[in-house]
Amino acid sequence: MTAPALHVENLRVTSREGRVLLDVPLLTLDAGQSLALRGASGAGKSTLLHVLSGLVRPSAGRVIWGAQDIAALTEDARARFRRETLGLIFQDCHLFEELSALGNAGLASAFAPKADRAPIRSAAAQWLAALGLGQAGSRAVDSFSGGERQRIAVARALAGSPPVILADEPTAALDRANADALGADLVRLAAEGGRTLITVTHDAGLAARMGRQITIADGKIVEDSDG
């Protein structure tokens, strides 16, 4: 699948109390670009990532991936969009502890259409191999180090061959060496597949690898620069 371009306009997310958490009049991203979302804690960068992934429905505005405004979709339709278009990576991996590395990487095969199950599991095995975990697919994930667990999460995000990868501080829980290695892999794998990559990060090293950097403060984009 070709990566869709992103077009966000008049986006507002407000809390129940009415406080504005995010206010983005316009944000566009070409297909296949990589973007780092930076800013202080609580600035709104994770909220933006959640809106872009459809996990949070904005209070107002449009979030258009390709030709599809996901802000207007039902919850099930947004789930389908995530399933078919996005690969999500979380800060703390979110793995099923009782499943093997391969079971986690190929988790989407559990709910994918029958015809897609085998390809997803096969892709999961390939991504694990590409991330240096090819021999450990059958091991339970609780036996892996933090860096290895995050690689499994990356493999899971890539297993469905999504055109877009959204990552929320993927290197935050890792030591420097592991963070650098994972960052490099993530950017390389995204670029090789022509994927769009958006990551929230405090990691200057990871941000520097991205094609573009946006800084958010108090829910607003305050800086937008090429990497």
Binding site: S53, D76, A79, R82, R83, E84, F90, H94, A108, F111
Partner: peptide, 16 residues
């Protein structure tokens, strides 16, 4: 709940 949320986040249908 956390495991279920993960499933929903990565696109599992509500029915699943």
């Amino acid at each position: 709940a956390r495991s279920l949320a993960l499933l929903r986040a990565i696109g599992a249908p509500l029915r699943f």
